Simulated scan of single mutants.
Amino acid sequence: MTLQEKYTAVIDIAKKNGVANLKVEQQGAVLHIAGKTSETVKQKMWDAYSKIDPDMRAGDLMLDVEAADFDEVYEIKKGDSLSKIAKQFGTTWQKIHEMNKDTIKNPDVIFPGQKIKIPKG
């Protein structure tokens, strides 16, 4: 079993939750997983790791995940607008747009399936 297979649960959580700048690399006998995400997703990844290696003694995983300045990743659904999403999360569409300028060029044009970061407060 490869290290990526061993830690599939941790990697899947990262991928499904849109961890930014996700890097999964094996260096020698250690798998390095790095990226930037919300505190909630970071904790989910640590929880998955602790189920695989409860005593954290294997020494074969380096989990370097930085908590970001957003609460969560949201997948846009049909009928959504940035204003509607902002209201749902108690923020403004301007803050959402500013945080997601890399994926949302025009705040009036969003698509179902797009994943966006929701800013804190």
Rank of each mutant, 00 (worst) to 15 (best):
K87R: 11
G35V: 05
K95P: 00
V73W: 08
V41A: 03
T8A: 11
K44I: 07
I116N: 01
Q26T: 14
G79R: 05
I52K: 03
Q114F: 05
V109H: 13
V65N: 02
M56K: 15
G113E: 02
Q27V: 15
M1P: 10
G59P: 11
K115A: 07
H97R: 04
V30R: 13
G113C: 02
L22Q: 00
N17Q: 01
K95F: 02
A86Y: 02
Q4E: 11
T37C: 05
V19L: 06
E66T: 15
V19P: 01
D69I: 07
D102E: 14
I96N: 01
F89I: 02
I52V: 06
K115S: 09
A14H: 00
K51R: 11
H97T: 02
Q94P: 01
V30C: 07
Q88E: 13
T37F: 13
I11V: 15
G28N: 13
Q114W: 12
A86M: 05
D102Q: 14
G18E: 02
Q26D: 12
K101G: 14
L82M: 03
E39L: 14
P54G: 14
K84L: 09
E39D: 13
W93L: 11
T92Q: 03
K120W: 05
A58T: 09
K105H: 12
E66R: 11
A20F: 08
